[in-house]
């Protein structure tokens, strides 16, 4: 048994060493896999804030993932075709600048999470799961039937968006961008978890009545957490679209919501690095098992069942001993 903090350090080291090795060995495909893992991890870190810390089992986080993806797709496609997004009352041009796209993705998914959260947080338990799922599916069908941006076929962006001073088409440089963003978000979420806000959020998850009777407006608390959660997943969506240089309604599908949830369960619910480990393991399983059989989901199911039944706290929980919250 090792301390969770050392385990986290090892995970970070692997996320540096594996791509470095891939560069040395000239295996760009491995870098792409690692990039996928890091982006999925980021989406999971977003959901984990709501699901792990807040106990808000959102089965519709694909909505924010997709929103981030389409923020990128729409802005980049306008830039690609030299058509402004709108001309009246003022002109808004498309853009292929990553920082601008990220900002738009974050703001758009935060607003969407505010809207969906404000409505769905009035319910609890299974109803909450179903309402969030319904909202996610609503966007899925909307993008399928909306012809302006590719409809069912999705939207291809031929050139990866630009980041000042970097060549984003070089796999390792794009990986670097995603990795640094993941680090920044992990740092922020770690601070958030330990802040009064995080203490209250998790406290309200453990005992809502207690949070209310010490004067905490639990609804508003959860809504803010839900918005931050959606914004992080939205940022991941924008990166995912840039990785593939393609967006499609699939990003909005409930399968994506389920996958993001699997990362968390696999790695460890409410553990800071849970989704990171979960996403990395998922990508590895997908790569190795998927190569063996088309039906690799069966094996994934067995592994998931094993983790849920025998490893309390997911892979992280199974490998590390419990760290008291205020020790750090």
């Amino acid at each position: 048994m090792i301390r969770e903090r050392y385990l986290n350090m090892m995970v970070l080291a692997l996320l540096v060493l594996v791509p470095a090795y891939a560069v040395l060995m000239d295996e760009p495909f491995t870098i792409t896999l690692a990039t996928r893992a890091v982006i999925f991890a980021l989406a999971g870190v977003g959901l984990n804030l709501a699901l792990g810390q807040g106990g808000l089992v959102s089965f519709g986080h694909a909505a924010y993932f997709g929103m981030g993806g389409y923020a990128m797709g729409i802005l980049a496609s306008h830039a690609q075709n030299y058509e402004p997004l709108m001309e009246v009352p003022f002109v808004i041009e498309g853009t292929n600048s990553m920082p601008v796209i990220w900002l738009v993705a974050i703001v758009a998914s935060a607003l969407l999470a505010l809207l969906i959260g404000a409505l769905s947080l009035r319910t609890t338990g299974v109803y909450f799961i179903m309402v969030t799922l319904a909202f996610g599916q609503m966007f899925y069908y909307f993008t399928i039937s909306w012809p302006a941006y590719g409809g069912e076929d999705g939207l291809s962006i031929y050139v990866r968006n630009q980041f000042p001073g970097l060549n984003t088409l070089d796999p390792i440089q794009f990986y670097g961008i995603c990795f640094v963003l993941l680090l920044a978000v992990l740092y922020g979420v770690n601070r958030l978890n330990k802040s009064p806000f995080g203490l209250a959020l998790n406290g309200a998850h453990q005992n809502e009545e207690r949070a209310l009777t010490v004067g905490i407006n639990v609804y508003r608390l959860r809504l803010v957490a839900f918005v931050i959660s959606g914004a992080i997943t939205g940022l991941a969506g924008a990166l995912f679209a840039d990785l593939n240089r393609f967006v499609s309604p699939t990003m909005f599908s409930w399968g994506v919501s389920g996958e993001i949830m699997i990362f968390i369960i696999l790695g460890g619910v409410a553990r800071l690095f849970g989704p990171v480990v979960g996403a990395a393991v998922y990508i590895m399983l997908e790569h190795f098992l998927g190569g063996l059989s088309e039906y690799w989901f069966i094996y994934l199911g067995v592994i998931l069942l094993f983790v849920v039944l025998f490893a309390k706290g997911g892979i992280i929980g199974g490998l590390s001993k419990k760290e008291t919250r205020h020790a750090g």
């Binding site: 009064p196 203490l199 608390l221």
Partner: peptide
């Protein structure tokens, strides 16, 4: 009605957080 996974001190700090209205402080460790 207590946060059962929290330490005794954390439960009391939770009360203090509610009292001080510092729920929306995001960065300083509680």
């Amino acid at each position: 009605a207590l946060a059962m996974q929290y330490s005794v001190l954390e439960n009391a700090v939770l009360g203090a957080v509610g009292q001080s209205g510092s729920v929306f402080q995001f960065f300083r460790p509680a």
